[in-house]
Simulated scan of single mutants.
Amino acid sequence: MNEIPSDNWISIEEAAEYLGVKPVTIRNWIRKKNDIPAQKIGKLWKFKRSELDEWIKSGKSAIE
């Protein structure tokens, strides 16, 4: 069966696992205004997998 992945909000830890990096790397990208698609909800940073995929495809995730 083909399941459509849900595009719920994920945490920094889940985003890090999804991207194959450590949570501290995600926090550094947020701090450095690296254009990572993150939304602050209350005190927590949240991400959508689809937005992370688009960010990677756009090339904005490349280290300069």
Results as ranks from 00 to 15, higher is better:
N2Q: 10
N2H: 05
N2G: 02
E3R: 05
P5F: 02
S6R: 02
D7H: 07
D7N: 15
D7G: 01
W9S: 07
W9E: 10
W9Y: 14
S11K: 08
S11R: 03
I12H: 04
I12K: 08
E13G: 00
E13W: 06
E14M: 06
A15C: 12
A15V: 10
A16K: 04
A16G: 03
L19R: 00
L19Y: 06
V21Q: 09
V21D: 10
P23I: 07
V24E: 15
V24T: 09
I26Q: 05
R27S: 09
N28I: 09
N28V: 12
N28E: 14
W29K: 13
W29N: 02
W29G: 05
R31K: 15
R31V: 03
R31W: 06
N34C: 09
N34R: 15
N34V: 07
D35G: 03
I36S: 10
P37W: 06
P37H: 08
Q39W: 08
Q39N: 04
K40L: 10
K40F: 01
I41Y: 06
K43A: 08
K43H: 13
K43C: 06
L44S: 05
L44I: 07
L44H: 09
L44M: 06
W45S: 02
K46V: 08
K46E: 03
F47E: 05
K48I: 03
K48P: 01
R49D: 02
R49N: 00
S50L: 04
L52C: 01
D53W: 01
D53V: 11
D53R: 09
D53Q: 09
W55Q: 10
W55L: 11
I56N: 07
I56P: 01
K57E: 13
K57Q: 14
S58E: 12
S58V: 09
G59I: 12
G59S: 12
A62E: 15
A62P: 01
A62G: 01
I63M: 12
I63V: 13
I63N: 14
E64A: 14
E64F: 15
